[in-house]
Computed example of a mutant assay.
Amino acid sequence: MSLTLAAGTAEAQSWEAIERVEHYKVNGTEPIELYRSIGERGPKISLGRTIAHTSFKLTWQRDYQQQGQACVLATAKPKLIITYTLPKAAQSLPPAVAAKWKAFSDGIVEHEKLHGEFMKDLTQQIQDVSIGLRNENDPGCKKVRAALQAQLKPISDAHVARHGEYDRVEMSPGGAVHQLILTFLNP
């Protein structure tokens, strides 16, 4: 199999992620009430609930072109939709609680937005290895498609590990999210 990434043909194609925010309502007028409501209403992940969640849908428009016996992946245009699911207080809060809620909420948004940046990085990495991918003896463009899939697995595995490590650090004792929770709940 002769597989190459043709120099000069892998020019970046511009794209922008679509970012959406969905809120779920939490009840209470005191920090502990709001936090308990998060535990009852937050996004369900695996067996439990979480404060917030970032998900994504990534689809591609790819143009495989036959060039004699060779096949080249000429374009790869992503459509990335990132959805942030965040808590929102259902009622007006007393001024002191509102200030604490804002700081807590802003910190959670910052955490989730970094997950979104990771997803944008993943998409760009996929595009970078896609455009210009070429196989010299590939009528029907089957080999180049298989070669692309083989290159995507390590990128995907690294992406999953990056998210996991980020959450592990952020949520561990002393981590940024852990500190947000403590600051929010403690008087």
Rank of each mutant, 00 (worst) to 15 (best):
residue 109 V to W: 11
residue 99 A to W: 08
residue 123 T to L: 07
residue 88 K to T: 10
residue 45 I to L: 12
residue 66 Q to I: 03
residue 108 I to W: 10
residue 170 E to P: 08
residue 80 L to S: 04
residue 149 Q to M: 08
residue 56 F to N: 06
residue 148 L to R: 08
residue 153 K to P: 02
residue 50 T to D: 09
residue 79 K to Q: 10
residue 103 A to D: 11
residue 56 F to H: 11
residue 86 L to A: 09
residue 124 Q to K: 06
residue 153 K to D: 13
residue 107 G to S: 15
residue 126 I to S: 01
residue 115 H to V: 05
residue 141 C to E: 00
residue 56 F to R: 09
residue 117 E to F: 12
residue 74 A to C: 05
residue 117 E to Q: 14
residue 42 G to Q: 05
residue 120 K to N: 10
residue 74 A to N: 12
residue 110 E to H: 15
residue 152 L to D: 03
residue 67 Q to T: 01
residue 70 A to V: 01
residue 145 R to G: 12
residue 105 S to C: 13
residue 117 E to A: 15
residue 160 V to W: 12
residue 166 Y to M: 07
residue 104 F to Y: 15
residue 94 P to V: 05
residue 128 D to H: 10
residue 99 A to P: 04
residue 64 Y to E: 00
residue 115 H to P: 06
residue 114 L to E: 12
residue 68 G to V: 00
residue 79 K to R: 09
residue 133 L to S: 10
residue 126 I to F: 11
residue 147 A to I: 00
residue 77 K to R: 13
residue 126 I to M: 11
residue 70 A to I: 00
residue 110 E to N: 14
residue 146 A to W: 01
residue 123 T to W: 15
residue 84 Y to M: 05
residue 151 Q to G: 14
residue 126 I to V: 15
residue 78 P to Q: 06
residue 101 W to K: 02
residue 133 L to K: 01
residue 99 A to V: 07
residue 157 D to G: 05
residue 154 P to R: 09
residue 104 F to E: 00
residue 56 F to S: 01
residue 77 K to H: 07
